[in-house]
Amino acid sequence: MALERKEVEHVALLARLELSEEELTRFHRQLDNILGYVEKLNEADTSGVEPLAHAAASGNVFREDEVKPSLERAEALAQAPDSDGWFFRVPRIIDMGGEL
């Protein structure tokens, strides 16, 4: 198989999926098949074809900069598994610093 098992494990970890050994084996095979199928596209002759950066045909869709009412806090918090009435509550994060 062209795809390595540890790549499947890596992708599963990034997607926060906990896979059993049996699932890993099965998804490894399936993913490898999918990639092999997509690989076929590389056989198409695309010389002289502009690379497509985006599948959407038309663009420049804007909204104006206007404030619209937000959700009531209670309603926003109700969508989450845990809150204290003011904040969403999540398991304690040790890794400081955020991403941005």
Partner: peptide, 13 residues
């Protein structure tokens, strides 16, 4: 990161 009310969880705004 620290809930001032001591829930032991992190709070998100």
């Amino acid at each position: 990161h620290e809930d001032p009310r001591g829930s032991g969880r992190s709070l998100v705004d």
